[in-house]
Amino acid sequence: MREEQVGDELGARLKEYEGCPAAVAGTGKDPVNAPMIRHWCEALGDTNPAYTGPDAIAPPTMLQTWTMGGLSGHRGRTGAYQELLGLLDAAGCTAVVATDCEQEYLRPLRPGDEVTFDTVIEEVSGRRTTRLGTGYFVTTRTDVRVAGEPVATHRFRILKYAPVPRAPLPRRPRPVVNRDNAGFWRGVAEHRLLIQRCTACGTPRHPWLPGCNACGSPDWDTVEASGEGTVHSYVVLHHPPFPAFDPPYAVGLIELAEGVRMVSNVVGVPYDEVRIGLPVRLEFQRCDEELTVPVFRAVRR
């Protein structure tokens, strides 16, 4: 995603809606109730006993359900919010996808609670181009109350965009799996990063090899990496683009806490903010049905 502010007249107009209310004194269509809670739990396979019985609470993550307009539309939505959405529709940004949801629960909701809410338009981004299409992110913040008492807050971000059909990215190349490294990839499939260790002299090694570089012994076992590491070195790939990859991206040489290094992607941080010494933590990225790879996420300090 990248800002494209030049000539973004619509963006400037949309910005004027920041701070405007999107819903004033909205009311939930139904009080918090056991049947809707049960439907939710059945749909999601949630068997938590806290959501059933005489002392039941509503699943906290169900918060937004109580303020949804449903097929009969929203109650309490302001003209400002309708105008904002209308401007986007008129500009061809007719499709919506939700991208972020941040909820804070001050107390549980229980059957019988009647929810009221106020929503403000917190932020409208400039024009952004995403894989789905070009559009604008709209962030709202909703304060939810019961009998005037705050019970929760809910920040929600949608992308309203002009849809464009797109070809899927080709699949990531397959790793070469052989007798020497099959154990490594079996570990990755189980979300475990296994390091070879020489049972004769104790030296850890990576990548996997049939013998020890330190003493030559062919005998080894494995230790599971803790997942902690730092960026020992890195490069940023800009060009040429390689099928299945989306440059620019950072490729790091990661020094694991166990003392070995491995090449992997550094994620969770813009490519141009990767630095030598950056603390990272192991994560497993599922590329498709058949392939999972270890990657390293920057740890915020």
């Binding site: 999601l44 396979g45 949630d46 938590n48 806290a50 699943p59 993550t61 939700a98 949801c101 909820q103």
Partner: peptide, 15 residues
């Protein structure tokens, strides 16, 4: 939809 994902994330932690 995001609400289902939100619920599954909550369920994962409370499970």
């Amino acid at each position: 939809n995001i609400l289902t994902t939100n619920g599954l994330v909550g369920r994962y932690v409370t499970d």
